[in-house]
Design a protein around this nucleic acid. Structure first.
Length: 940
DNA sequence: TCATCCCGCCACAAC
DNA sequence: GTTGTGGCGGGATGA
């Protein structure tokens, strides 16, 4: 938006200037001006008047100034299209033009084109004749000036970001193209991307309707949910790991399970169900869909950073396209196109991720992370079905058809990345916003694919709901999950595929000790989330009574805030965990295991969180996931720009896999599952099938993985950290993801913990009577409160039921703003070790706190985040990779309450945001395993 | 050399 | 058959 605004100004100004100049200045200027006008009127009188323009103009201030001119310009452009470029160039050659243009550099290209067009050929030619050609060439708009991004900005400048309903204007591609002096083809590129976000919709041939950003939030929200269902995060993590592995191996990596799964999905979507495979295939490849998927990657990503190569790989996989290099290159090209538009929209920005290999181009999501009610009310704002291009196109219908056919899919593969099914749609529809959602669903998934995804989400939700209803079941499931790694499998989305569609559902709720109610919300609809959370928490809770009671063990209660992630570890926890473990014996809480789990756990959490997408639960999921994710996020945020992602070469799976059994079998399980998932990120879904279907295997795998982890001392830094985490004690700490913009990580340490480790002195922090130390908000991103269960008062956020113990005392703190994080922990909860956690030292071995520790362990992986965003010094983030079992499951917490209280500007936002975060985090968790070093050069 | 991505051919779909 | 769409990748540009 902002960008666009700026752009608009710029654009406008230039023109104005021109105009003014023309009028004021000399004739030279006049030429241009004259041109424009003359052109406008004469050439395209028709065009000039286009409704769009007029409307647009009227609508926004920007327009006001601009539009009029533009109108004029447009007409001019029209005629010229064929030679517009040439003319423009020529015109550019003119000194006057140059000067002016120089001033206007940014917009020049377009303007020039327009203006140039205006100039009489004679003039241009003259210029050329004069030998200005050289100059012309010199001035010839540079490639940058012609960039799609710039073009898009100009395009956006023409329309108000938030047009009044009445204002909705139609967009004539021809006009726009002519006015902008570009080929229509270029406009298609822009419009397709905009359409994917529902900023515009196709009305008719060559006609699009401008909707503005009203529905953007909703669209993003939907995309996020879908992305979570898709397990994109996991996929990304998987791919990253794969890459790393490959690097190791230097071998070729061919698609692994993951891809396959995706491919399958794709196939299913595009071909199987769809009537016209060809059409579908084409649609699947459409820029619009790619754009949506690309956006999903961001929304799901914990770090909010997506590298082009990974995105391309994911897209390729999904599209079933051969992974051959050419395809990859093509995808990357397309992604550049999309990225340019998204950048112009101010949704992403380019950054560089430094990996072991080197620097990789990447993009960071700078758009809204949380999608709360949204300004865009989908309901109101959302463009009507008519507006939805896709719908118009009948995509919905197709989807439906497909969906129907695929329902099974959803169920079977339900876990597969996306399998939309009728159920999903239903769900969507069923949701509060049903109407809206449906649309969106259609919209989002313009393709069947999308619809399927939606369906899946819906299904997940339903299941989630069911699960919530049958918490008991959940507990059981949890137990089972603990037993069966498979169930826990991160991708659990499907986990139960075999069983029920979403086994995890139950888990989530029960899992989160916090408040079920809340938790339930939080609880990830998806098995993943739920699972993750469950693992740690659940175990605890279960052990306790099956109550979802907040983990007594857990020192802290996680308050759902997108930004926050809290990890708790404490001896107690360990105990509880042990209890859990006992239950989980299966999990094998190997001594080590406990610690190790972190990674997986984190991942798991993340995963779980993700899945919940459909539900608001997402927020819940986030919590768990949030832990790691949060870190990641922070890292990401911090590192707005250049990020160095160091991924542990080792397949994160095993390493991660280490299940901190100790903490919780469940967690472990989850982890394991997660690993599995990681192993087959994309496959996760499928894997889900396999894994889920093969719980035993998965379990075994998990165990193995755990064992591996344990075994693998090396497992990398992460391991170390994890191992640390393994330590019986869980460091209690709270990780707060910085809200967007937050630079540093926020850690919450228990008072017991050694603040020093963190560098924060307890004294410095305002200490609540609570044992926990509060970290300065400044350093910390704003985050929600966290309470240790120990505290008697149940957190407000936490459902009382869930956390009987939790002290809510502080929570209510109205004063707390997102910015002011408050942590409450029971000292008891905190173990000295916990101090480690805060461990600034990423490497510091984190006691393998059962739940939390694991996270730390990983988190320990120092992630250097330089978040450009972060004003603060670059922060080394510890990857909180896993919120190990313990972790709280802030997710569960998710309760709206929390939100209300804590909503912080950035983080808190919607449960969805949570979900996102969670999802991201969880997914990132996989990545977490890897080190994520983000060196973001400064803030952007 | 590599990242970026403009450009326009051309296939497919919609009239 | 014409026009609208948009996939695709060659190859230019810039760092």
């Amino acid at each position: 938006m902002e960008v666009s605004c700026l752009t608009l100004k710029d654009l406008i100004s230039p023109r104005h200037t021109r105009i003014d100049l023309a009028a004021e200045d000399g004739e030279n200027a006049q030429k241009e001006n004259i041109f424009d006008q003359s052109r406008m009127t004469p050439k395209t009188p028709m065009k000039n008047e286009p409704i769009d323009l007029s409307k647009q103009k009227g609508c926004t201030p920007e327009r006001n100034p601009i539009t009029p001119v533009k109108l004029v310009d447009r007409p001019l452009a029209d005629p010229w299209t064929p030679t517009a470029n040439l003319k423009m160039l020529i015109s550019a050659a003119s000194p006057d033009m140059r000067d002016r243009e120089k001033k206007k550099e940014l917009f020049r290209p377009i303007e020039n084109s327009e203006q140039n067009d205006a100039f009489p050929d004679s003039v241009q030619y003259d210029m050329v004749d004069d030998g200005t050609v050289d100059e012309f060439e010199k001035q010839r708009p540079s490639r940058k000036q012609k960039s799609l991004g710039l073009l898009c900005q100009k395009f956006l400048a023409r329309y108000p970001s938030y047009p009044l309903s009445a204002e909705k204007s139609t967009i004539s591609l021809d006009e726009v193209a002519s006015s902008l002096g570009v080929e229509r083809r270029r406009i298609y590129d822009i419009v397709n991307v905009l359409e994917s976000l529902h900023l515009v919709s196709r009305v008719a041939k060559n006609q699009y309707c401008w909707h503005g950003r009203h529905s953007l939030s909703q669209t993003l929200k939907n995309l996020q949910e879908i992305g979570e269902l898709q397990k994109y995060e996991e996929q990304m993590a998987y791919i990253q790991h794969k890459e790393q592995d490959l690097e190791y191996k230097s071998g070729d990596c061919k698609k692994e399970t993951f891809p396959d799964s995706q491919d399958r999905q794709l196939l299913d979507f595009s071909e199987a169900d769809c009537p016209s495979a060809a059409a579908n295939s084409r649609k699947d490849k459409s820029l619009r869909i790619m754009s949506q998927k690309f956006v999903m990657l961001f929304l799901v990503s914990k770090t909010k950073i997506v590298t082009l190569d990974i995105a391309a790989k994911i897209l390729i996989e999904e599209s079933q396209d051969a992974a051959d290099h050419s395809k990859f290159k093509t995808k990357v090209r397309r992604l550049y196109d999309i990225a340019n538009v998204l950048t112009s929209l101010g949704l992403i920005k380019k950054v560089h991720v430094t990996e072991e290999r080197g620097r990789k181009p990447a993009f960071k999501w700078i758009g809204p992370v949380e999608f709360s009610g949204n300004s865009d009310n989908p309901k109101t704002d959302v463009p009507t079905s008519a507006a939805l291009p896709e719908l118009k196109r009948g995509a919905c219908a197709q989807h439906q058809t497909c969906a129907n056919g695929k329902q099974r899919f959803a169920r079977h593969a339900s876990f597969n990345t996306v399998q939309p099914s009728e159920g999903i749609k239903r769900k969507v529809s069923s949701e509060p916003n049903s109407p809206h959602r449906e649309r969106q669903a259609c919209i989002v998934g313009s393709d069947e694919y999308c619809s399927k995804m939606i369906n899946l989400a819906a299904v997940c939700r339903q299941k989630m709901e069911k699960d919530t209803k049958s918490k008991i079941c959940a507990t059981e499931t949890i137990l089972n999950s603990s037993r069966n790694p498979a169930i826990i499998s991160p991708f659990s989305v499907l986990p139960d595929s075999g069983d029920s569609d979403f086994c995890f559902n139950p888990l989530p709720h029960p899992v989160f000790p916090v408040a079920h109610s809340d938790m339930s919300h939080l609880s990830l609809p998806n098995g993943m989330n739920g699972q993750v959370l469950q693992t740690p928490i659940l175990a605890a809770s279960k052990t306790e009574n099956g109550k979802t009671a907040l983990l007594p063990n857990q020192p802290f209660v996680y308050l759902p805030s997108a930004s926050l992630v809290m990890l708790c570890g404490s001896p107690q926890e360990s105990l509880s965990r042990e209890n859990l473990l006992t239950t989980e014996e299966k999990c094998n809480r190997s001594p080590e295991g406990q610690a190790s789990p972190l990674k997986p756990q984190a991942a798991v959490f993340a995963v779980n969180c993700h899945k919940r997408s459909s539900q608001k639960c997402a927020s819940l999921s986030t919590p768990a996931a949030s832990i790691e994710p949060a870190a990641k996020r922070k890292t990401m945020e911090h590192s707005d720009v250049p990020l160095s992602l160091v991924l542990p070469k080792k397949p994160f799976e095993p390493p991660d896999v280490e299940y901190p059994r100790g903490s919780n079998c469940a967690s472990n399980v989850h982890l394991g599952a997660f690993h599995l998932d990681l192993g087959t990120p994309a496959a996760a879904d499928e894997a889900g099938e396999e894994d889920t279907t093969k719980p035993l295997d998965s379990q075994d795998q998990e165990k193995q993985s755990q064992n591996r982890d344990l075994e693998d001392p090396s497992q990398g830094k992460e391991h170390i950290s994890q191992e640390n985490t393994k330590q019986p004690f869980f460091p209690q700490y709270l990780y707060v993801q910085p809200a967007a913009g937050l630079s540093g990580f926020n850690f919450l340490f228990s008072a017991n913990q050694i603040p020093g480790a963190v560098g924060l002195s307890a004294s410095q922090l305002p200490s609540l009577s609570v044992p926990c130390v509060v970290v300065p908000s400044t350093a910390l991103a704003p985050f929600p409160l966290i309470c240790s269960p120990a505290i008697t008062n149940p957190l407000s956020s936490a459902p009382a039921g869930s956390f009987p113990n939790t002290a809510s005392t502080n929570f209510s703190m109205p004063g707390l703003t997102s910015t002011t994080p408050v942590f409450i922990g029971t000292t008891a909860m905190v173990t000295p070790k916990t101090s480690k956690i805060p461990s600034v030292d990423p490497q510091q071995p984190v006691p393998s706190a059962v739940h939390l520790s694991p996270v730390f362990g990983r988190s320990c992986n120092t992630v250097k985040l330089e978040s450009p965003v972060c004003t603060g010094p670059p922060v080394t983030l510890l990857k909180l990779q896993q919120p190990s079992a313990a972790p709280l499951t802030p997710k569960s917490i998710r309760p709206t309450h929390h939100e209300a209280f804590f909503k912080t500007p950035g983080s808190l936002g919607d449960p969805i945001a949570w979900k996102k975060n969670e999802g991201n985090q969880t997914r990132n968790a996989s990545s977490v395993q890897r080190r994520l070093e983000i060196s973001s050069s400064g803030s952007d």
